[in-house]
Nucleic acid binder design. Structure first.
Lengths: 204, 204
DNA sequence: TATAAAATACCCATGAATGGGGATTTTTGA
DNA sequence: TCAAAAATCCCCATTCATGGGTATTTTATA
């Protein structure tokens, strides 16, 4: 018997999956969560064999949740179940410990197949995704972690002065980070960094 | 027999709904579409009693599709089935001719109930939504159509000068529109109009 | 027809971001 | 250990948006 938990903020989709898997003799849905926090509580209380996990969820996102599950419950396998097909999204979920990746625009037949494959100890990747190559798996983002940190604050509309105050650094340091990001990202012109920050959020 | 079509870009959700409704004797899913264009073709070929229709879809969005269906096939009832719970989204779908509105974070039981209620000639609204009041139904957006036009261009990163050239008006006219929008929207500070333009896209 | 809103346009000043350049210190990884 | 990257910080200049104000003409609607 394969026990499965589902983390997905759309209850309609959870109901649909449950309905679809209802008569599968080897699979039981043991719980579902509408946000990342609930998921962690659910897994803590009763670790399932497999977690089907969205990425964009309230409270704790799928990437963070997968990391925590991997750390505390290595026997529980996380499968990403998401609309995001970008390599970076895939990479981040894999880095977080996911052993599978399925797109929501695939049929539920794919979900069923994934569950069974992963229960055998294998990995499962939706044929529609482009798996990041192994070498690239080692590469880092073009932006440094400090830059990313500042980019988030830029996206929130903070001025350089406000960011400087918040991070206990000089305003000119913030401006330099901005300049470096603009150069690395090949942007140019007023507001383009802000636009990038906003459009790339969850765009991986 | 109630015939139902589903327009939803996530195939997994379509499969789930089909599975859920599979054994309902009075309901038949007669087709599904992964984008607004497909939906219109499907309805043209075989007008169902009810269309379950997402808002954010590729090619033709749910609002536009609902309008077209209402015009050509007034017997076919459109039900919004979406994550958007904002009044403006609801208003636009209602204006487009929808007779129902269901949130994806509700259970599929709600979908079933809605289908049956609407098939009887009534309307159905998810208890979780806040229905726009009738008076407000007449009111317009706080921004004028010209302002909205300029806001779209702001969101694309155009400078006031570029917008002026594009619309054959003076740069100072564009700046005045910017100023008026900022005032009307109660914004303040650098980049806030751009942030608004980007964050409000599909935020209704 | 009269009024209000919308569209058009301008002046001026300031703040913030961007874009050119420079530099030193600290951290990381081969 | 050493070299490169990252983090820190600065100077200067320009552009662009915002924010204060003004005004006239056109359009829409009661």
């Amino acid at each position: 018997m394969i026990t499965v938990a589902i983390a997905e903020d759309h209850q309609a989709l959870i109901d649909g999956i449950q309905s679809y898997l209802e008569y599968e003799d080897d699979i039981t849905i043991v719980g579902h969560a509408n946000d990342g926090e609930q998921l962690l509580e659910l897994v803590e209380k009763r670790p399932p064999n497999i977690v089907l996990c969205d990425i964009r969820m309230p409270k704790v996102d799928g990437i963070a949740a997968a990391k925590m599950i991997q750390n505390k419950f290595p026997q529980t396998k996380v499968v990403a179940f998401t609309m995001f097909d970008q390599e970076e999204a895939i990479r981040q979920m894999l880095d977080a410990g996911a052993v599978g990746y399925i797109l929501k625009n695939s049929s539920l037949k794919v979900v069923l197949e994934a569950i069974r494959t992963i229960a055998e100890g294998k990995t499962y990747f939706d044929k529609k995704i482009h798996l990041p190559s192994a070498e690239k798996n080692k590469s880092k983002s073009v932006l440094s972690s400090r830059e990313k940190e500042i980019l988030v604050l830029v996206g929130r509309g903070r001025t350089s002065h406000e960011i400087a105050d918040e991070l206990f650094i000089g305003k000119s340091t913030v401006d330099t980070h901005r300049k470096n990001m603009i150069r690395k990202l090949g942007l140019s012109g007023a507001g383009e960094l802000l636009r990038y920050a906003l459009e790339k959020k969850y765009d991986f």
